[in-house]
Design a protein around this nucleic acid. Structure first.
Ligand SMILES: [Zn+2]
Ligand SMILES: [Zn+2]
Ligand SMILES: [Zn+2]
Ligand SMILES: [Zn+2]
Lengths: 137, 137
DNA sequence: AATTATAATGCAAATAATTGCAATTGCAAA
DNA sequence: TTTGCAATTGCAATTATTTGCATTATAATT
């Protein structure tokens, strides 16, 4: 990966924001410094940075895929299908399990920002996620 | 969820194919029985079936999201970034870990087809996934 | 500094997926 | 059955993302 200004600015933007940004948000930020920037350049740079392990790429149910800088303390998330709540999961529990998977399958896991969907306590009590239908087997 | 023919045919298509199909493939299949079918109807029906837990939705790195019927024996996958190899992971190891996550966070995990990316043994030996850059901290 | 090979970019076009809205349909209550 | 409501659909427009190709820029080599 070459040291282009786009790579640099995107990484800087994600590191500074410390949150999940979608491609358009990254584009708008970086465009302030590189006015001639093209959206497809951003998509390609994001893909590059992700493959290099410098950022994470995740579908968190927000319509567009979101990106985040992968810093010293990794983390993961639980996202509620009912209310959209995002719970952060430390890396300890995840790393340990990944190690098990790796050991059992001769495979090196690179996923650096796992997102699991489900239902939070509040939504579960409201009955969310209990959809039934006439089709049940 | 109502018992519409679209819901029925989509579910049947996915159950019969026993593989991962993308939205366009599902559309083509079902359209043979419902010629006036519209793609957006398929997307919406797929979303519905997924929310009801009858099918899984996953990005397996094929460009388009893929869907699969969730049958009796659940499974998950490891996908190699280097060569695209897809390794199937039984549900036992996954279910156990999900239970841990659920217990620790008052959250009911609904993810029914987990996909982890990484590098297979062969690609690891070829040096894939070892990309370095001039930027290393 | 000039040359070369290849990675990165811009642009336009293609593909994938979502959304608003009016018309239709399934389902259940009357 | 008939009626009424809400879920579902088609269609067009919008948004999100990818891709082909010609051009430009980076970094190594001469
Ligand atoms: Zn995060
Ligand atoms: Zn919730
Ligand atoms: Zn599968
Ligand atoms: Zn591989």
């Amino acid at each position: 990966m070459r040291t282009t200004s786009v790579n640099h600015f995107i990484l800087e933007t994600l590191q500074d924001s410390q949150t999940h940004l979608n491609a358009h948000q990254v584009y708008e930020q970086v465009r302030q410094r590189l006015p001639s920037l093209n959206p497809s350049t951003v998509y390609r740079a994001l893909e590059r940075l992700a493959l290099a392990g410098k950022i994470s790429v995740s579908d968190m149910g927000c319509g567009a895929v979101v990106y985040e800088a992968v810093g010293g303390c990794r983390h993961h998330h639980l996202v509620c299908h009912g209310c959209g709540a995002v719970i952060t999961l430390g890396d300890d529990l995840v790393r340990g399990w990944f190690a098990q998977v790796e050991a059992g399958h001769h495979f090196q896991v690179a996923t650096n920002h796992l997102v699991l969907f489900g239902y939070c306590e509040a939504c579960r009590q409201k009955g969310e996620g209990q959809e039934q239908s006439l089709w049940e087997a």
